[in-house]
Design a protein around this nucleic acid. Sequence first.
DNA 1: TAGTGGTCTAGACCACGGT
DNA 2: CCGTGGTCTAGACCACTAG
Lengths: 249, 249
Amino acid sequence: MKSGHHYLPNVYPNMSEKRYRKVYNALKSGIQLGTYTVDAYLPSENELCDTYGITRTTVRRALDELLKEGFIQKEHGKGSKVVERRKSLGLLSVKGFSEAVGESVKTLFLQRPIEKNWDNEITIEVEPELKKGSCYYFERLRFVDEKPVMHEKNWLPSTGLEDFTNTFFVEDSFFKTLSSRYLIEVVGSTSEIRAEFASKNDAELLNIEQGFPILHISIVFFTSKPKLKIYSELYCNTREFPVGNSFHL
Amino acid sequence: MKSGHHYLPNVYPNMSEKRYRKVYNALKSGIQLGTYTVDAYLPSENELCDTYGITRTTVRRALDELLKEGFIQKEHGKGSKVVERRKSLGLLSVKGFSEAVGESVKTLFLQRPIEKNWDNEITIEVEPELKKGSCYYFERLRFVDEKPVMHEKNWLPSTGLEDFTNTFFVEDSFFKTLSSRYLIEVVGSTSEIRAEFASKNDAELLNIEQGFPILHISIVFFTSKPKLKIYSELYCNTREFPVGNSFHL
DNA sequence: TAGTGGTCTAGACCACGGT
DNA sequence: CCGTGGTCTAGACCACTAG
């Protein structure tokens, strides 16, 4: 047939930002930067069509993405509502950590973020390419009800995170900081879990007898920034607070 | 404008199976029943359009569903390929269990499936409504390299699973059996993880000294059958084989 | 070059929520 | 009733894969 009424002029022939991606990014930023707060509704699909001069199919494609990533939830006849994201993530969390947020949860830095060389303490294999550069490292001790429950060590490549060593953490959460300050989201993880005897150091930190069983979790988190992976080694005293994990399709 | 060329006659006005759902179910069954085997390609989107007399949008909607649930993966320019599903599930698995499949993995039933009353040993809360009925229970000891690594107890409501106590497990996998015999899929889980001293019984079963640290995982699995939840208590010796977990958006 | 999936348009009807 | 999201049609062009 003829050359399709218009579709899109060759403004977008090759390598270009897809339209749904543009809407997606705009909305995501709006959520992360607080333009759209939790429980607020995004503009309706038709409004978004007008705003961006695109069809509903494309708008819906963008919203589907946000839905899949847990930023919004849709309500038939009402609209797309912004929700707390973490619920939909299959991330490990100490029971009563982020859920029972705020109350009686504390975090102590044993080492504030610094730039250094990669460690040998990471049990999950780090891609050799990454090891060529340096990394950021920080170490924390996390409390629930004034009791230390998790000793945490984190490594990540020191690339692209503007001024990371001087960044303060939003609500003591590294992930929330990544999201709101750098617009980077965690999109996946792989972990290995072991039961071990507490080392002398961990026993002291977690205030338990040496040789008490602790949970040792090694994780690599994948993010929306292609080369940014986060490596964590967690040591948890689960006597009172088990570690939880949920996932849903 | 006039009443839309045709769209769909009022054959589907209210409450009816959506068209994409029909395609989805057909393809899913095809995968589960072996019509489409792993690594095979599904019919192309255009073929499916013809087969079902629908448009590509609708076909793609069905495929998106299968994609999200991890049944297929798409290859631009080639087609939609059937893949091993578990990879995309955030399910806990003993490293080298299903992955290093077959070789040196064994399973021993300590208790074959029986019908009985609900237990008090389940640490994750069971919905009171479920407890009114009876449940199926089975208990297994699982080996890697001839070494016992996991002691597993499982409970599930005894409703709707035709002849479950006499069912043989496909490839020693309960989930594969659910999928291929009952067309039921695991769609989510919630778990709690603890490090504990091995009990006398578990120490014997797992061939370790009593008081050695083991991983205790309590899980409830959600399935595509609304009221069917599966409760598991796992006791793992992670000295050689850590437990793994992955998830991806 | 043919075929497959990826993106997008323009427009329709249906079902749900609140006024 | 109107507006919002849910489903679907018909057809287009683009980008990738393979013979």
